[in-house]
Design a protein around this nucleic acid. Structure first.
Lengths: 236, 236
DNA sequence: GGCCCTTAGAGCACTCGGTGCCGGAAGAAT
DNA sequence: ATTCTTCCGGCACCGAGTGCTCTAAGGGCC
C-alpha cells in the first residue's frame, strides 16, 4: 500500500523484512531485537537485510526516502506566481498525508521512537532533511531579498515545527482525529505570520502604491492584526 | 579553558583525551580514527575513554552538556515580567557565547561536522535538546494562551533556526567576525515578528482600550508593519 | 536442449563501537 | 599497617555494519 502506485517493481523480501522487524520490535522492543532475530524470522540471510536497509534504524522509516523525493519534485514543479510560504506549507501537507495513509503503522512507530533514543535521533536526521529541502526552496525564491537566507531558514523551521506539532498531537491521540485538518490549523498559524510579507516585495512592488489602513484596539492579538493586513493586501 | 571557572575538580585525563582525539581527527579524519588510536596516543586505557565520554561522538562536543545546563538555569531564573520571546533569544545568545569563547576550536569542529554524517546527526540531537528546553519554557509561560503550545514550538524552532543561521555564517567565515553581533541581528528578526504579539493578550488586555492606527504602503514588508505596531503598543 | 552471462542471495570472516566484569594501584581515614 | 573507597587498565563479550566469495536462479542466444 505504501508503494502502491508506481515503480520499484518487486519489494517482496523488503516487505517481509519490515513485517518481521516490526513484529519483533513491538513484542520485545527495538534494542532487545537483533538483526539476526529479524532475518531468522523472515527466513533470509543476514547479509540481505543490509542490502535493503543501510542500517537497523532504516527499517523503522521505510517510506521517508520516497516521501522526501516526492516533496523535492513537488517544490521543483512550483510556479513563480505561487506564494513561497503557501508552497512549503503544501509541501509539509504531503508528509502529513503519508503518515495519515497508515494510521496504525504510524502510531506504532511513534511509540517506538518515543522510547528508543537512537530512533529519535534518526528521526531528527530525517526531519532535518525535510527542513533543508524546504529551506533550499525558499532560499532560491528569496535570493534577491534582504536577509533572504535567514528568512528562509526561519520559515522552514517554523513550518516543520508546526507540522510536527500537529503530527505529534494526532499520533498521541492514536490516529483518531483528522490529521490533515490538524496540520492545516497549525500551518495556518505560520502562514498568517509570513505569507503577506513574503509577497509584498516581489516584482509588483512598485506598480501599486496603495495605502493600507488598519485600525485596531490595543488588546487585539497580533495574529489578528496580521491576518487583517494580509487579507487587505490579498484583495487589492 | 572550557571548564575553567567552577567545579568538576580535575579533568586532567578528560582534557588529554579531547586533545588527542582532535589531533587525530584533524590529521587523518574522524572515521579513520578508532577509539584505540585515541587512547594509545593519550596513553590511557581504552575503558577510560568510555568512562568520560559515553560515545565516540561525545568527545567532539565536550562542552554542550554544561551549556545546556546553563541555559536551563538561565530560563528557570527568569521573572514573570520578562517577555518570553526576549528571554529565549537571550538564552540562545548563551549558546553563541560558548562558541565564541573558543573560535578556533569551534571552527575546527564545524569542519568535522560538515564532512562526517554521523557527527551531523549527533549535533542535531544536541540542537534538539536546546530547542526542547526553549520550547518547554515558552510552553509554561504561554500555558493560558490559545494555541500556546503551537506558538511555543514554532517560536522555539524559529529562535534555534535564527541562531544557527548566524552561527553557521560566523563559522564559515573562520570565526573572524563578531559572533554576538551576528546572532543579535538574526534574533532581531525573530523578536520583531513575535515579541509584541506575545504580550498583547496578557492580563492588561481590558484596561486600555486604545485604538492603534497603522498606515502603510502596500509594498511595505510585513515585518516592518509588525515592528511598527509593536513600537506603537510598546510606548502606550 | 546446452551454454553463458547477469543478478540476487547465503555464508563467512573481520572491524569497530560499546559494555560488564574483575583485578590492581593509589589515597584517605581509622 | 590496614581497610575502604576510588580510579584506572585489561580482558571477554555482544551486536552493528562491511567486504568477499560461492552458489543458485533466471534470461537470452545459438
Amino acid at each position: 500500500m505504501g508503494t502502491a502506485s508506481s515503480n520499484t517493481t518487486k519489494p517482496a523480501m523488503r516487505d517481509s523484512l519490515i513485517a518481521a522487524a516490526f513484529q519483533l520490535f513491538l513484542e520485545r522492543g527495538y534494542e532487545q531485537t537483533t538483526v539476526d532475530d529479524i532475518v531468522t524470522l523472515a527466513g533470509v540471510g543476514r547479509r540481505s537485510f543490509f542490502r535493503y536497509f543501510p542500517s537497523k534504524e532504516d527499517v523503522v522509516f521505510p517510506d521517508h526516502e520516497q516521501c522526501l523525493a516526492d516533496m523535492t519534485r513537488f517544490l521543483a514543479a512550483s510556479a513563480d506566481s505561487d506564494d513561497p510560504v503557501v508552497r512549503v506549507c503544501d509541501a509539509a501537507r504531503l508528509v502529513m498525508r503519508m503518515y495519515a495513509e497508515n494510521p496504525t503503522f504510524s502510531v506504532q512507530r511513534y511509540r517506538l521512537t518515543r522510547e528508543v533514543a537512537g530512533l529519535r535521533t534518526y528521526e531528527l536526521s530525517v526531519v532535518w532533511r525535510y527542513e533543508k529541502t524546504l529551506g533550499d526552496y525558499l532560499r532560491t525564491r528569496w535570493a534577491d531579498r534582504r536577509d533572504g537566507t535567514l528568512r528562509a531558514n526561519v520559515v522552514a523551521a517554523a513550518v516543520v515545527a508546526a507540522h510536527n506539532h500537529a503530527l505529534r498531537h494526532w499520533l498521541r491521540s492514536g490516529g483518531e482525529g483528522d490529521a490533515l485538518a490538524e496540520v492545516d490549523g497549525a500551518l495556518e498559524f505560520v502562514r498568517s505570520t509570513w505569507t503577506a510579507g513574503g509577497q509584498a516585495t516581489e516584482a509588483p512592488a512598485e506598480e501599486t502604491e496603495d495605502v493600507v489602513v488598519v485600525i485596531t484596539k490595543r488588546s487585539t492579538p497580533m495574529w489578528r492584526v496580521v491576518r487583517e493586513v494580509e487579507s487587505s493586501l490579498g484583495e487589492g
